[in-house]
């Protein structure tokens, strides 16, 4: 009847905004701990055994997968529009869409693979 029923935009936006929310809630603390505090010695890094145990919990892996997948789709959507508007590249919409969402899908597959084999 009309194009709206088949448009992927609502779904992509939902992934973008869930990803934005999850990233805002979770990324700062994880990035602070593992990206800054442990490397510069502000806090002592946890032992391998402890992290392995935490990571072995299926719930941790599920949460981390959700975080990775949604955060990647958040990036894909935002970066797509940044390229469209910020650099006026809308004429290359097809390769941009493939790069962004394709990249997110590949990232999800890698994340799933890594988290399943812990």
């Amino acid at each position: 009847m009309n194009h709206r029923r088949s448009s992927p935009e609502p779904l992509l936006w939902m992934l973008f905004s869930s990803g934005g929310m999850v990233a805002a809630l979770m990324v700062p603390i994880l990035l602070f701990l593992f990206g800054i505090a442990f490397p510069v010695g502000l806090l002592s890094a946890p032992s391998h055994a402890h992290l392995y145990a935490v990571l072995h919990n299926p719930l941790t892996r599920l949460v981390l997968f959700g975080l990775c997948a949604l955060a990647l789709f958040h990036w894909a959507h935002r970066f797509r529009y940044t390229l469209y508007d910020g650099l006026q590249l809308k004429r290359y919409a097809v390769p941009i869409v493939v790069l962004c969402y394709g990249g997110a899908v590949v990232g999800c597959v890698i994340a799933a693979g890594l988290l399943l084999t812990v």
């Binding site: 990803g19 990233a23 990324v27 994880l30 990035l31 593992f34 990206g35 391998h48 992290l51 392995y52 990571l55 981390l64 975080l67 990775c68 955060a71 990647l72 958040h74 990036w75 970066f79 990232g107 890698i110 994340a111 890594l114 988290l115 084999t117 812990v118």
Partner: peptide, 17 residues
């Protein structure tokens, strides 16, 4: 940078496992 964080996190997960 959110995407970079995901890469960094997956490298960590890979290293720990």
């Amino acid at each position: 940078f959110v995407a970079w964080f995901v890469v960094f996190l997956l490298l960590l997960v890979n290293a720990v496992s």
